[in-house]
């Protein structure tokens, strides 16, 4: 237990060392989460438009047995 306390104390500088690591972790994790959520949102919005475009392109092909 005392070694853990010693480790957390950081030679008396714990109040400066730990916030440095904490704020770094916080900011970078937030950045990762926000970036992934932003990508997911765009992928979600893009999906119906892509399928719509594909189906319309199929319709433009002359009717008959050439349509896949």
């Amino acid at each position: 237990m005392s070694t853990l306390n010693e480790f957390l104390n950081m030679g008396g500088y714990g109040a400066f060392v730990w916030p440095s690591y904490g704020v770094s972790a916080l900011i970078l994790i937030c950045l990762i989460v926000l970036s992934i959520r932003h990508l997911r949102k765009i992928e979600r919005e893009l999906k119906p438009l892509e399928t719509d475009r594909k189906s319309r392109r199929r319709r433009k092909v002359p009717t008959g047995d050439t349509v896949q």
Binding site: I32, S35, L39, E43, L46, L49
Partner: peptide, 23 residues
């Protein structure tokens, strides 16, 4: 790692804008 996620979002975002315009 984060750049790849963000640049993909940017490229797909531009595609989204173009498709919406076409729509």
């Amino acid at each position: 790692t984060i750049f790849i996620i963000r640049v993909k979002a940017e490229i797909l975002g531009r595609r989204l804008r173009i498709l919406r315009l076409a729509h």
